[in-house]
Design a protein around this nucleic acid. Structure first.
Length: 395
DNA sequence: CCTCCACCGGAAAGCCGGGTCA
DNA sequence: TGACCCGGCTTTCCGGTGGAGG
């Protein structure tokens, strides 16, 4: 460890501090959430009364960090009291079968990856867990990935306690989707006594605290130009206070500075870094399916035509139909567009919030979340969308 | 307090391409 | 080879709903 420290260059003291996997000693501005979480878990542990917790908030609001932080704290207690903590990222284990299989294997049941019917895996798992008097905590990160695939792993796990005699299971679900809680079956929620913890987005001041603290550990003394952190904060604040983005930016800026053999990270390096992350947005847009591209273009077109920032879904649909017509592309039904919009929202390309407008019904308010100038050329570069560039809208 | 809009999103079924098995 | 299955994508159908305005 110390050797590694010494090997770091002039810029970084400890690069790993800026990685998203790093769990800091304390998480600024998340005291309340951590206290609630610790509280819920430790009382559940002591009283052997399982509790299910749903954590939600946008990307980069410290959800995973907070949960890992708390697990670390509880680890000691866990080891002495036979309480395994199992962390699963659902993005990697995205079917019920795989999650259950992973859990079963965790409890030393040799389940082949393929070939077993799911309910058999489930009942094996139950048996395995129940062999001992213990308290099991299962953490499902990116939990929303499971529900959308009409999987029942959640429901099974949330209700598993009623089928157990000796052991007890708590589930902690983490979700990026702010409306996820509504997505969950109300019945299951009340049945399992699910508690919710919300992680709000960080504001600029809070982001600054976070970056300052991490930078002090990550960088060598005076390796950062004074303007660097404020610039990172400003850029991240634009991304809905995404702390992960801010830390990435800092890391990449540092690496760029290092590679260019600079002694200091400068504002210029941050600029280059932010361009680099822009590249990943471009990449994402590039590989979007045609229909999603048209949909995204509809938002752009509306912005030009109406000179506004956000639009209701009805307007977007209409524009989408106009564009399909113009391009001679088969158009999708409205129902399907709802799903594509949610998808773009999850990708972080647009913001979609449900609003109720009284007499004017209930709808989604949709706005672009990335710079227009950034994605427009990418969209129009698609051969299928070429014809869009000749739609001239009076300004 | 009730209504009613404009859309949301669940359920289920169809279609399609690709993979599997006898 | 053909029958069958699977998963992803899409459509059809439809029941639901928050809140401004009556």
């Amino acid at each position: 460890m110390t050797e590694e420290h010494l090997r770091e260059g002039e810029i970084f003291a400890d690069k790993a501090v800026l990685h998203s996997t790093y769990i800091p000693e304390n998480l600024p501005h998340r005291v309340e959430q951590i206290a609630t979480l610790t509280d819920l878990l430790s009382t559940a542990l002591k009283e052997k009364a399982p509790t299910n917790i749903l954590i939600y908030g946008k990307t980069g609001t410290g959800k995973t960090a907070a949960v890992k932080y708390v697990s670390k704290q509880l680890e000691e207690m866990a080891r002495t009291s036979n309480c395994p903590l199992i962390y699963i990222n659902c993005e990697l284990f995205y079917t019920q079968h795989r999650v259950l299989g992973y859990l079963a294997r965790f409890f030393n049941k040799r389940v082949p990856v393929f070939g077993w019917p799911t309910d058999e895996v489930y009942s094996e798992l139950k048996e395995r867990i129940d062999t001992e008097d213990r308290y099991v905590v299962v953490i499902l990160d990116e939990m929303d990935k499971l529900v959308t695939k009409e999987d029942e792993v959640l429901y099974n796990l949330l209700r598993i306690n009623s089928d157990l005699n000796k052991a007890r299971v708590s589930v902690i679900g983490i979700s990026n989707n702010p409306t996820f809680s509504e997505l969950l079956d109300q019945r299951v929620k009340s049945l399992s006594g699910m508690k919710e913890i919300v992680f709000p987005a960080y504001n600029a001041d809070q982001l600054k605290d976070i970056l300052t603290e991490r930078a002090a550990m990550a960088f060598n003394y005076s390796a950062l130009d004074d303007a660097v952190i404020p610039l990172c904060v400003a850029l991240a604040a634009k991304q809905d206070g995404d702390a992960k983005y801010a830390l990435d930016l800092l890391l990449i800026s540092g690496e760029i500075a290092e590679r260019s053999k600079s002694k200091k990270v400068s504002e210029e390096h941050v600029r280059i870094a932010s361009e680099k992350t822009e590249d990943s947005i471009i990449e994402m847009v590039k590989i979007l399916p045609l229909q999603s591209k048209i949909l995204l273009s509809s938002v752009l077109m509306l912005m030009r035509e109406k000179n506004e920032r956000s639009f209701i879904s009805g307007d977007v649909y209409n524009m989408y139909y106009r564009l399909c017509d113009h391009l001679g592309v088969e158009m999708l039904t409205q129902r399907r567009l709802i799903d594509l919009i949610s998808e773009l929202d999850i990708f972080g390309l647009i913001n979609a919030v449900i609003v109720s407008r009284g007499k004017h019904g209930r709808t989604k308010e949709i706005s672009l979340k990335v710079p227009e100038e950034l994605i427009q050329p990418v969209l129009f570069a698609d051969p299928e969308l070429k014809a869009l560039s000749d739609i001239r809208v009076r300004a």
